[in-house]
Design a protein around this nucleic acid. Sequence first.
DNA 1: GTAATAACTTAGCACTCGCCCG
DNA 2: CGGGCGAGTGCTAAGTTATTAC
Length: 553
Amino acid sequence: MAILCEPVVCQRAVKLCLHPFIGFLFIRWEEEKYEDGVKWRFLEHSGPYFPPEYQPLPDNVHFYYDGKKVKLSLAAEEVALFFAQMLDHEYTTKKVFRENFFKDWRKEMTDAERSLIQDLGKCDFGEIHAMHKAKVEARKNMTKEEKQALKEANQKIVDEFGYCLLDHHRERIGNFKIEPPGLFRGRGEHPKQGMLKKRIQPEDIIINCSKEACIPVPPAGHRWKEVRHDNTVTWLVSWTENIQGSIKYIMLNANSKLKGEKDWEKYEVARKLKSCVDNIRSQYRSDLKSRQMSTRQRAVALYFIDKLALRAGNEKEEGETADTVGCCSLRVEHITLHEQMDGKEYVVEFDFLGKDSIRYYNKVPVIKKVFKNLKLFLENKQPGDELFDRLYTSMLNKHLSSLMPGLTAKVFRTYNASITLQEQLKELTNKSDSVAEKLLSYNRANRAVAILCNHQRAPPKTFDQSMATLQSKRKKAAVKRCEEQLLKMEIQATDREENKQIALGTSKLNYLDPRISVAWCKNMGLPVDKIYNKSQRDKFAWAIDMTEVDFEF
DNA sequence: GTAATAACTTAGCACTCGCCCG
DNA sequence: CGGGCGAGTGCTAAGTTATTAC
């Protein structure tokens, strides 16, 4: 395999010295020179915060089966309440949801209950549902004092459980609360929707902290499953959830040193790709002619991943999750080839459900060699067959890491997102623009990335109405106010309209090197808080600190 | 070599909260 | 000064990738 790039690995300290690192980041970095894989020296925390115990229904609220009042056991009653709470949701009418729920609910019943309750259709959760709605209503109508008291109680919980001590730093924890029990929903057509997500007990919990630290105290009468001292991982608490059998973790907040450094590294790898992407592109273009079918498939997949920012697309176990795909797992039915379309040659029409069951629909002209290969891959295949039947994400990533250390499929998304933002900002903004115009341009650049990465959202429920309001304000303002304000509102309206189905947050938070944005703000004379809110400024503190006006991704 | 597992990032949606308008 | 609304935040599902187990 050709090595196309200089390795980037194992040069942490050296890498840093290349940068105008200032303030705490530098000091913090200097103090930790850990051997490979070690994430901390000292870790102390309070353990997880458990949701409140189940409160039995009051005596005047009843469950009915086949028209008759039935007093349920505590365990069965709790699960009945989960279902009753969701009754306003459309998915409680879905067959899969109902069947999964009923099956799991029956497991929680006593023998007597189980022999009585055999048909979900005969269950009447009406009173329980009404009680729940009344509770929600009551919470909304709390007095100021009650709300204040609640807020203070919550703050106390955050103070006690929300922080940990990692080496010499007090760090905010990302998710210190144990996920409460309920009915699993999942996204899209999930085969496990409606299943009971069980209550987590201290006996399910693994605690990770350092040997010298105070070990968190389990709730009275309970003990932890295990206490371990593994400083090669970053999690504080873990447990296994019962729906997929996967492990859940409590980890640090994005504004922590540990996460910040990782984030910085991610963008440095993406920048490294910038310097060798031309070589990598010519390599996979020449691989399109390979005699090896698997190499050709890899080349076409790479072409898509690079050009369209598709995800890698791991194999998934059938029946365990919704039927979604990424690049390597595309099937015959997900693409249609058009020799000619809309006046363009060699158009590939994509239509598939990706991560979170978000639809990816795109018509893309491709180079002839890619088109011909796709035709070849489709020969003698049926819908349901894999397009890239000789390709696995593991092979792809192995190949990529041989081209550049640290390179994997997802780096292309980061790289293409960041480079697109930088180019769009250059193209769209002028120093002489007004603040509102600059922000519109920034959002448009952000939007270009979100579209590339297919970050969609459901149009806000009140969209049409609020759009109309904004439009009419426009007219009122025109009558009585100066043109500048008119312009500002027009710009806002444009921004919102263009953003109807696009989610900017994901790319801003995960794909766009924050130094591009910070440098742009400096260039444009805009305060950073015009584009980053408080938590974004926290997360990107490292970039805000170190970025010079002339930063180039 | 392949499958399973572990660890970590990425993702959209629901809810909350604070601000603005009538 | 209450209600509506959008921005911000919390939540946790759903990905990717490296590592481990067989």
